[in-house]
Write a protein that binds this DNA or RNA. Structure first.
Lengths: 151, 151
DNA sequence: TTGCCTGCAAAGTATTTGCATAACA
DNA sequence: TGTTATGCAAATACTTTGCAGGCAA
């Protein structure tokens, strides 16, 4: 079950092309291909994973270009960058499903998502109690996923 | 108001020396000095900050040694390492005050702590709902601290 | 056509490792 | 005194940047 449906991925890609045109930036083949992979991913991709998929599909795109496209994608708001403390970042398409947090498997690296109303409610209160102007938060649960427990 | 009182810092340092002796590892001057700085810190120190304090106090200790002492401190359980997504880690002495999470100021880098019972209660439930064997979690609130808001 | 994007390689940052020397027990 | 920690420098991993040439508009 993909995070982003085929159709939603296509729609996001279309929005990215539009974003580039609006910004008077060219829609290059590299940008289209990299964005296509990230925006249609059913997972939280690392740069390494993106590079691998590019190779599999026969595309020869430089590493620097991947990073530069990701920068644009994040700036466009269509992609979010995450740092799960692995020493590298991962990238996730921003779908309509709204705010969610992450469960990260420390064995296989798989990332699951969850939403919890209670959590989202309490964090602004805590920030307020400490006179913090909340900008964003990060909630991650690390553990062993069901599949890895059975090995 | 320091996180770790002078007395508590001293006690932690004493425990570190005992830990080394128990492990049949030498208590060298470098280990003692670096541990002293980290264990008595009133803040979440980066390696850069540790290095700076060492220089201020006239100690010439190699960078590699700092990292190696930190590795021992973390292994001993007296220090916790944190990754606040800044591209480097920070280190915090483990005091008796128990579990807490962090508020990180995105302007000045200051780190405040907070504890919230509701939060600690809900996270294991969420892990369970997703058949995740919980190992640890991370809750961070990023925003602008009170001092920085007034600038 | 023309300016910006791309690819390559080099640089940059945080951290780790190898090795000769020095210091602790 | 023998073992092992230290200091320096080189290596590593991820990411960013500079520059010559290629491509989108």
């Amino acid at each position: 079950m993909p995070r982003v449906g085929q159709a939603e991925g296509q729609a996001l890609l279309e929005r990215f092309r539009r974003y580039l045109r609006d910004q008077h930036q060219p829609v290059t083949r590299q940008r289209d291909v990299v964005a296509g992979i990230v925006l249609q991913a059913d997972d939280h991709l690392s740069v390494g994973a993106i590079q691998r998929r590019l190779k599999e599909r026969g595309h020869r795109i430089g590493l620097a270009t991947i990073y530069r496209v990701l920068e644009i994608l994040v700036a466009s708001g269509l992609v979010k960058a995450h740092d799960f403390g692995e020493g590298f970042r991962r990238f996730e398409p921003v779908t309509g499903q709204g705010r969610h947090e992450h469960l990260v498997c420390t064995r296989c690296g798989r990332v699951l998502e969850f939403a919890n109303e209670q959590l989202e409610r309490v964090l602004p209160i805590i920030a307020d109690e400490h006179r913090f102007q909340l900008q964003r938060h990060r909630v991650e649960i690390y553990g062993v996923c069901q599949a890895c427990q059975q090995l």
